[in-house]
């Protein structure tokens, strides 16, 4: 059985803003297998987020093919994609992006509102997810009552509550202090090891990359072959 979660062929993205054309991603070819925890690294502006957004079908590619979980995303309509994303993808942002008017529990419940689950089941699932990230004592708290690390763990709970096939994290520790960062990384690593979650994590932090099972580099929109880092990479202050 094919255990490829994401497969891209010559995936490209260019942004056209007014007169300017920016090639954010050039002919990227990548296969991500079930159970992998990949760290995606590269300098700022190299196209890491772009690749992640394309994989989550939050944006449409300008060229090439993208196959996620066996679905050709190009052929789906916007509303089919939204439904597909709800079911198959969990996304974690650098800036947490919790809904401020909802409690931790309600934030985690939110994606389940798009499923057929009843209120009681939704609450139960959300509580389980919060417990998994170690925040079962913070369910009724609002985001502003939580620390950054706690907020990010709630965001991770929200991303995994639908039991997605793949977890995409865009610099999840970018806004966190070292201790909270390592809590979050330990959590992601646990999700990968214990629950077999496939994870792609964009990061600038070499320490963070240690938690991953594999590191891939992007430079100037080009995905470098496995095992290859940009030449000047080591020189970058991190």
């Amino acid at each position: 059985m094919d255990d490829v979660v994401i497969r891209t062929r010559n995936l490209s993205k260019e942004y056209v803003r007014d007169e300017f054309r920016v090639v954010a991603l050039k002919n990227a070819n990548i296969e991500i297998h079930r159970g992998e925890f990949i760290a995606l690294m590269g300098p700022s502006g190299s196209g890491k987020s772009t690749l992640l957004h394309l994989a989550a079908a939050m944006d449409r590619p300008s060229g090439g093919d993208l196959e996620v979980m066996g679905s050709q995303l190009n052929s789906l309509s916007d509303s089919e994609i939204a439904r597909w994303r709800n079911r198959h993808v969990g996304f974690v942002f650098q800036s947490f992006n919790l809904i401020p008017v909802l409690t931790a529990l309600e934030n985690v419940e939110l994606p389940l509102k798009l499923t057929h689950l009843k209120k009681g089941e939704r609450m139960q699932h959300a509580a389980t997810a919060l417990k998994l990230v170690g925040l079962d004592d913070r369910m009724g708290h609002f985001p502003r009552q939580l620390s950054g690390g706690q907020e990010q763990r709630v965001a991770i709970a929200r991303a995994i509550v639908t039991d997605p096939d793949i977890l995409l994290c865009d610099e999840p520790t970018g806004n966190l202090d070292a201790r909270s960062a390592s809590e979050v990384l330990t959590l992601l690593s646990r999700l990968n090891k214990e629950f077999g979650k496939t994870i792609v994590m964009v990061t600038h932090d070499p320490h963070a990359a240690h938690f991953a099972t594999k590191v891939r580099y992007i430079d100037k929109g080009e995905l470098l072959p496995e095992g290859q880092a940009p030449e000047d990479w080591k020189a970058l202050p991190n």
Binding site: A56, D78, S79, R85, F93
Partner: peptide, 15 residues
């Protein structure tokens, strides 16, 4: 607007 983006990421339809 940002939250709208978040809701869409979670799978909410435009409608």
């Amino acid at each position: 607007v940002r939250e709208v983006g978040v809701l869409k990421t979670l799978g909410f339809q435009s409608s």
